[in-house]
Design a protein around this nucleic acid. Structure first.
Lengths: 197, 197
DNA sequence: CGGTTCCTTGAGGATGATCAACGAGGGTGG
DNA sequence: CCACCCTCGTTGATCATCCTCAAGGAACCG
């Protein structure tokens, strides 16, 4: 679900190409554009002084991202970079608001979108606070699985251990150790270093 | 900011009295009502098996709470209990949606409200991941201070150490030790056990 | 192949959690 | 007024856990 492309272009949106690892916007920058991904993907994350990173979200083709600060004249709480070569549509803030005013259905769509994001974030903080590494990882796996739609079968987790670490606030080595333990207790399968859950 | 009271009553909302520590809704319950506080306050939080709690939010007179699941037909991600005797207005889900459809300005208000909540939650997770207890606590103090409006002067923090612990995912003893250390480094003042920041 | 990127393991250490005990203040009812 | 009981704050000792650091192996890709 997203804003219709023709509509975006009609209102003056521009598609911009990004190389892998380019910064789309940086933390503490003021939000001036609505971004929607045409193709590629984007990661929003924070890093602390020791280089530890926390992934706030990953977005791919069709997704908009970085909207909340737009609505409230705030700065971005995290940095966004492309994780593949990507094409991203940018629409200026005032045009974006005009579209919202013009199309109530789009406004309603954003209401639902934001509600989903809050819900997801609430669940995330709940699990992170739960402390135990295995819990955090399982929570992350569940949320990925739910999002992917294949909640019943065992699926391949397309993340590196480092990425899982960044999502859960743990360290790579901890993630690795938890996974090998989870393998022993049959909570995950590991085939050829790939994780199935 | 809130939905106008007369409007709520016109649409069939009912004010209900709660004693201190009553459950307003429980985790994993389906959302069926819009809640807005007339007077008193409410805490939304999660607990894990070891009894450790994490406060998702505290709401007081004038605030609505628990809206996100309402928009997406989801269950509550946390439990809500009153922390004082309170009066809370309840409006059924369908009436709530009718109001939204009827009044675009209210819809827009919710858009902004949700955007604020996401923003706040994004900042919270960022700080929690940052790990170091002192950082987490400072982040919490800052967010309280910002919300309170008195960002410049030194203000009294109206929370017990246990409450600070619940907000930061730490243990009481850790919070106490951090505060005494912060006192020594002049980051907070402690007068008569009360914390000023 | 040579160079990345990712995964893995071990040893050691730091830090926050846990457990236990106590003090201080405030409110309540006898 | 006093005794009692809450709740809250505080401290010390010990422990478990995850992080850190270091090193090396495996897989993949041009």
């Amino acid at each position: 679900m997203q804003i219709d492309l023709d509509l975006l272009y009609t209102w003056g949106a521009v598609a911009k190409k990004y190389k892998k690892n380019e910064i789309v916007f940086d933390e503490d920058e003021i939000a001036n554009f609505y971004y929607q991904i045409l193709d590629g993907s984007v990661r929003m994350f924070n890093s602390n002084d020791e280089g530890k990173e926390f992934t706030q979200g990953i977005f791919s083709a069709g997704d908009g991202f970085g909207e909340p600060p737009l609505f409230i004249n705030e700065t971005y709480p995290a940095k966004a970079i492309t994780i593949q070569d990507s094409t991203i549509i940018k629409l200026s803030k005032d045009k974006f608001f005009k579209i919202l005013d013009e199309y109530p259905s789009i406004q309603k769509y954003f209401l639902i979108l934001l509600a989903q994001k809050i819900h997801a974030k609430a669940r995330t903080s709940k699990e992170i606070i739960n402390q135990k590494p295995e819990f955090r990882i399982i929570a992350f796996l569940n949320s990925y699985k739910k999002k992917s739609g294949h909640s019943s079968e065992k699926i391949l987790i397309p993340y590196t251990r480092q990425e899982v670490a960044n999502h859960t606030g743990l360290r790579v080595e901890t993630v690795i150790r938890v996974f090998t333990k989870m393998k022993e207790t049959n909570k995950v399968e590991i085939i050829n270093h790939k994780i199935y859950y």
